[in-house]
Structures are given as structure tokens and as C-alpha cells.
Design a protein around this nucleic acid. Sequence first.
RNA 1: GCCGCGAUGGCGGAAUUGGUAGACGCAACGGACUCAAAAUCCGUCGAUCGCAAGGUCAUGAGAGUUCGAUUCUCUCUCGCGGCACCA
Length: 963
Amino acid sequence: MNKYNPQEIELKWQKFWEENKTFAVTEDSTKEKFYGLIEFPYPSGAGLHVGHPRSYTAMDVITRQKRMEGKNVLFPIGFDSFGLPTENFAIKTGRPPAEITAENITTFTRQLKSLGFGFDWNRAVTTSEPEYYKWTQWIFLQLYKHGLAYKANQPINWCPKDKIGLANEEVVTHSTSSGQVSCCERCGSTVEKRNKEQWMLAITKYADKLLEGLNEVDYISRAKVQQENWIGKSEGAEINFALNVPRQDLGKHSVTVFTTRPDTIFGASFLAISAELAQKWIDVGWQASEEVKKYIVETLQGRTTAVAREDIEKTGVDSGIIAINPVNNESIPVWIVNYVLGDVGTGAIMAVPAHDERDFEFAQKYNLPTKEVVIKQLGERVDGSEVRNTARGICVRDGKLLITRNKKMGEYLLVGGGIDNKESPTGALLREIKEETGYCNIKISSYLGTVEHNYFHTQHKKNLHALVAGFVFELENEETVPRVENEIQKANILWLPVAEAIEKFENSPSFCREVEFIERYLQKKGLPFTENGVAYNSDFLNELPTPEAKEKMIQWLEEKRVGKRKKNYKLRDWVFSRQRYWGEPIPLVFCENCKGWIPLPEDQLPLKLPHVEKYLPTDTGESPLAPMTDWVNTTCPQCGGPARRETDTMPNWAGSSWYWLRYCDPHNVEQLASKEKLNYWQPVDWYNGGMEHTVLHLLYSRFWNQFLYDIGVVPTREPYKKRTSHGMILASDGQKMSKSLGNVVNPDEMVEQFGADALRVYILFMGPFDQAVAWDTNGLVGVRRFLERVWNLQEKIYDNIPAIVGQITDNKIQTVLHQTIKKITEDIAAMRFNTAIAKLMELSNEMGTREKIAREDYHIFIKLLAPFAPHITEELWNLFGTGDSVAYAPWPQYDSELIIEAEIIIVVQVNGKVRDQLTVSPEISEEEIKQMALSSEKVMKWLEGKEPKKVIYVKGKLVSVVV
RNA sequence: GCCGCGAUGGCGGAAUUGGUAGACGCAACGGACUCAAAAUCCGUCGAUCGCAAGGUCAUGAGAGUUCGAUUCUCUCUCGCGGCACCA
């Protein structure tokens, strides 16, 4: 036997795979397809990062296993090669980006091949090659022709260092001592706001479709949630408020607000409008006071600094204008405030302090009225345990609280009682007040929230909670009705000063909630109440639950023509142009004669990037292409007259927004990919990538795919059936790997020292796949030892043919072997690679304790290990298997009979503590095992002669004896 | 602030319809082999009490439910990720 020599073996098999085109695939309608996708790398000058192989190895394992299961597997690779780092390097060195990219791709290709991934290299694509970006440009033209690409002059995020416009998605906020600052995602410079003509893609038109599409895909929930948050759909209404403008005519006499809570309109105590909107009013002739004007100017100035706008203290000024609430004709003031933004909704809101955090904060500060119009609905079960609902009221008059003196229970804070089925809390309270006190003209004035209380229920061995709702109510007058005799007997009523009342209840644990309610009343806690509840003090909405109240309100508004249903999104259109060189040229020309942007005819694609002398963007923000007059000046494809090319290029996101489609048919010169091939391979069955791409890349590429679906180019609406994400690999110090920290692990060195197989297995073994893990080279040492032990097992192989050798099958090995087949198969499907490998180690340890190992058992072991460590297993398969490549060896099936162990250990517990273990056959009956347990010496000792109250048997696991 | 996730030995981590906590790996320690070292192989390895048999404690903290809780419920602490005045 030779020594395990990964360097030799790995090169040998990598060469074999390449020469035999082992992983090249063609469409085959007789076989079920499987399309596994990883995010193609950006070929940076730094070479492959150890983070890359985590995703690639995982998908390599999955696709290799699918291949062994007989699927026709597409596992492609390519390079996302347009982008800023290369361009910046070009600026620094004066070398053409294309040349730098080619070099980097050579390095990446060598590195990727050295790790033994089963990529179909024939299908490799490079986004910066004209054959590829021809189709990126083609897609852009389709978007343009369908009205989804347009040029707009609007404020954009401008990075003064990179000299490019950034999409919102590329701006990150950093906390500094002076507050939060918006920064460029890649260079960290503080972002400025600038106005610039930019190409925009109307992704907002797809907002609903992108949201709906999430229902039909299997993405990790975090990705779904993040996409939903980013799209940020909110449904509500636009409502018009008539304005009574003092002195001047505004040109119009109303303002439209957007709200998601039209049901709270009866609680609107003022309108709050943005400074932007106020400025517009001034522009059309509103003569605001000097104070107001000053406030508007200051607020607008504050906006232009890129400092993020949260955490800023809320300020505002009364405009002097009065608005009329359409539902009750109430006059409310219009305030100009800094917390309403011009670019959100309509730039104006109706402020309902009782039910909105921000409005509440503002109203407190400026002493504006707060009117509650929604209260909490009780009556739902909490966490499956039983809930008792009660309501308590505190009644106030002249600073005194009404107390009930209950002869049996001591003193009560006025009233309370259980809420019957179908009764509302307020209804129950009003009924009880009347019964207990006789006061009959009472009004609930505010809600204090609920207290969950289980103090005196704990003696029952159940999760019994009482939800106690607190209310404040007022007597409208002193009128009473006679109380029933029973109540008079039971309780007296008296009025106490607040402090005295608190004192009464403070020391009684059962009544601490009463104190809490009084305190809430005094501090007005419980407000704002922003959840769903039940409407009250709301005229025709009263007693309706929030969703129904919203609905009814919207209908009312539409009927009266003072408002309408409206959806609102956070998602903004996609800023699609960059003033840069190293990107796809936008295939449009501007023609003075035709008065507009004219698309290049499709037969003139690709529009190639010209060679330029300097790659540096200009200070005016124009692209390095702008000075290339030879290239810029062209003729109009429509009229033949002089025209100018667009000099902006596309952002990095463009090329990666459709690359998985090109893999299906990468050499097609007629189409982006043929219909037949797309029909065969689409959609991607499983896409794994970084968490950092779950918002942007996923959203953009889904948008393009949906668009291409709508125009009949691709066969499925959603591009990816399943999306998973891997955790980051951190440096051994637990920090992010970075050149500047000098803690970067180089994959080349690891391959050289330990071998690609060891690196692959270690990367998957180091921790749960979806979590961040710190690098530990010692762990790699351990994995290398494991592979060596596997290698050395070959010495024990024998042919287990009973007739010839007379050996007896090793039952224990059989059991472990088949358990392992089951576990590995399940673990790969669930990406639990770490436990899969642990199980393989257990199996190899078990085999290591044997004198001999049957050849067929060793075969199974090699096949199970093959997706993880392809080189060593190819070698062993070649030496001891049936020849051929193990890559296509059939995946082993487990025998469910063999999984059952010959004898099992049953644990015996006495009062929950393990006291004995019994080794028995798995077929043992419940009676037998209970008998055995009770007659065990150890158990008898702990029983101390007492009769067991209960004996529980959990099949195959334990016997629990309760004394 | 809101939403989501997490906390288990010296370390990475196992263990889910609630059923022997610590699989597997690393590190550490002891032994074999060796002139020696490395490599390899064998063994020990949560804490604590005990000569031992064995006991007790232990999965971020505190409570609850249960015969039994790392697992379920509630409260709290810390950490990570996302969003952030979106009306």
C-alpha cells in the first residue's frame, strides 16, 4: 500500500475529469434534470477567498449526490467580471481592465479546478465578454421598449470618491459620534445628494409581482422576510382634507394624506405635512408667516445633508391653516413638521397621537390633543393555555378614585369582572358598573392596556392566565339606578384620593395590577396603542375590529368621494446608470432630430466598449467614455442624422441578473438561450449564495426573470425554486478576514499542505452551514487524519463470499453502515454537512476496530464519502471498486431492516433520575420491560420498598417509575 | 426603536413529535513505539464530593408546565443580523 498522497492523487483525477469531460452535460429528456447553482465569483485580484469554497463545496456535494442518484445534473460556473475594483486597479496601473480581468480569471480557474468541483467548464460564461453582454444589452433594450427604462433627473446618492451614483441599496449607514451617516458601501465615503440625469428601471411596477412570487418559492425565511421588508408594501387609503386657508388662495383647497390606518380618522387631532409640500404651497402663492418660512427653509436644509434622519428630534410649526376632518367636520390645525418626508406617500399625514408613536411623541411635545379611538380586543387564547378575560375600570372624579369595598374580598378598585363569551370588554365593564354601583350614565374615556396576571392561578397545575384590561371612565352625571339587594349586601362604594387608593392596594400581591393601572392612568402609559383592536368613539365604526373598520372606512370615503384605497411601497425605482468605464455600454443614442433616445437595432449588438486612454471618471461626474468623441458621435439608426451615444454604463448588478439563463445555452449566437434548452433546465432547482445578496441580487434577478417571462423569453415566472444561504467564514480571531488585518487564509496554501479533499471536508465539517464559523487550521489537521485513516482501511479489505472464505457477516457493521446511508442522504438534503461527516467518521472508526472489512461494505463507504472528498474516493474506487468514475456510481440505498439494532439499551428512571440501564431486544413487550425495570436491584434500592404510583414506558427509550 | 436569530465543556459543535446532555473533531494529559523527536497507535478528558461503589450539581439568568425540559411557556440579560421618522 502506498502512503496517502493527496497532491499526486488530486492532480491525477482533476486531469482525468477534464480529459473525460466527466461533468459536461447535455439535455436528455429521458432523464430527470437537476440544476444546482452557486453565485459566480467576481474575479478580483486577490484570488479565491476561503469563503467561496464554502458555498461551492456544499453545492458540489449536493450535485454530486444527485448525479449518483441518476439525475442529469447541471452545475455551471462563470465570472461576474464587470465592476469597480478592477476599474480602480486599472486607474492605478494604467492597464486595460479587460487584460486585468483575463489574468484574474486564469487564477480563479486554476484555483477552482484545484478544489475538484464538478463544474461543467464548457458552459463557463464571463459577463464582460461581448458575446455575453450582447444579451445583457438586448435585455435592456427590451426593458426600454416596454417602457420600463426611463431617464430621470432626480436626487441620487453621489459618492464623491468613486464619482458614481449609487443605488439606495449600495448605501450603508454607519454610526458615528455625530449621529448616523450614509456611506458608500464599498469605499466608505460619506454620500452626498446630487441631482443627475440617470437611467432608471421601473422595478416598482413589478413590486406586487415580486411580492406574490415569494409565495411559490422555497427560500430560507430570512431571505423572504428581507425581500418583503425591502418592497415594503403598505395598504391603506388616501384621504382628502378640505383646507380653510387664511388670507390667501392656495390654488387648491385641500390636501391629500396617505394612511395605513383610515380606521383611526376619528382620532386625528392635526395634519402634519412635510417641509417639501409646504414649500410647494409657497411656490404657488401661499403667503406663509415669516416664522413658518424660516422653519421650512431650515428643515429643507437639514434634509440635504446626508445625515440619516432618524434620531433627530421632532420639531414643527403651526402653519395657521385649518383643515376639516371629512368624517366629523371637526376643524384641526395643519402643522409643518420635520418627521414627515416629502418623498414618502403624499408628503402629508393625518396625525393620530393616540395610535402612532411619532404623532404621540410630537403631540406630547407641542401639547396637542390626544383622542383614543381604538382599544385592545381581548378574548384570544395565548400560547394554547387557558385564558380568563377580565376588565377593570378606574373611575375618576375631582381627583378622586371610586373604590368598592367588598365585604368578602377586601377593597377593590372599582369594578371588574369576567367577560362573557361574545361580550366586548367595554360592554362587560359598563354592565358591571351599573350592577355594582348603580351609576348608569357612564362613558369609557380611555384604555390603559392589559396586564397578564397569573398570581393566584399557579396553584392549579395548568398554564392559566388572566388578561386584565384596564379602562378609565367618567361619570356623565350622578344619576343612579337602584342596585339589586345582593350587590348592596356585597359592596359599599366610596371615593378616595389617588394616593390613598394606591396605598390600599400596594401591599396586596393579588391587587398589584390595580396599582399598575392607577400608575398608568397618572402617567398616561398604555399610549400610544398601535396594534389592532376594536374601534370606539368612532361613530359608525364603533365595536368593529380594526381590519373591518379599515375596510368600512375606505368604503365610506370612496362613497363620499373624499378618499380612495391606495397601496404604497418602500421600493424605489432602480438607478441603473453608472458614470464608469468597466460596465456594459447602454445601447441607446440621443438624436436631436428625432427628439429622443433611439435604441440600437438588435443586429448592431453588442455595442462594444471602446478602448480608452484614461479610466478615471471626470469631476463633472461624466463617464470616461464621454471624451471619446469618435465613439460618442454616431448616426441615428432611425433618421440617419448625427446622434450621440449614451456614455453611462450599466451597474454590476446587470450581468448577474440573468446569468443562470445563459448557462443553459452559453454559445447561442441567435438568442439569449434557446427555448428548448430553457424549457429543459429552468428553473434553477437549488441556488445557494451569500446572505448579503438576499435583498439586492435576488430582487433584481427575479425582476428581470419575471419581465423576461412576461415577454415570453423564459418559461418560468420565478427563476429559483429553492434558495439557501451559507454563513460567513471568519478568521481565527473571530473577525472578518481582511487584507488589512492580515488574517486571511489562502486556499492555495491549504490545498498544498493538506490537500483539496481535506480542505473541502473541513470547510463543511467546521460548523452548521448557515452560521458564521471561525477558521481553525487545527480542525483541518483532524480532517486530514480522518482521510488518512480511510486510506489505511484498504489494508483490511477482503471478499466476503461465505462459500469461499467462510466468514460471517458482521452485523454491527451492517447496522452502522445502513444507519450511515440513511443519515448521509438526509443530511445532504438538509445541508447538515457537519453531522453527515461526523457520521462518516463514526463509521470509519467502527471499521477501524475490525480485523477485516468486506469489500462491498468498503464500496458503500467510498460512495458515501465521494461527494465530500471526490479525489481520494476516485482513487480508492479505481483501486478496489469496479473501475469507472465514482461520480456516476449509483448512490447506495439503505435497508430499513438492517438499521434496527440487535439489542437496545433501555434507561430506567426513578422520579426523573436515571438509575439503571437494561440491555434488551428491540422486540421486548411493554409488560416484560416494566417487569424487568421494577425488579432491577438498583431500581428497588431507590424505590425503598414503596409501591410505584405510575410506570411509564417510552418505546425503545426508557422506563420511568414514579413513586 | 421595530423585526428575526442565537447563548451547551478549555475550543468548534452534537442531541427536537419533551426521554441516558456533551456525538464527531480540536486542544490538553497519560501510556506504547523511538537513542530522541515528529508521525502513528492505545487510554483519560463538564464541575464537584468520595478510597470505592456511587452521589450531587450542570445546557446565559429566573420562574412555570411535566414522571421527565438543552427542547414547550413567561420574564430578564447578553450577543449577532436586518430595517429604521415608510405614515
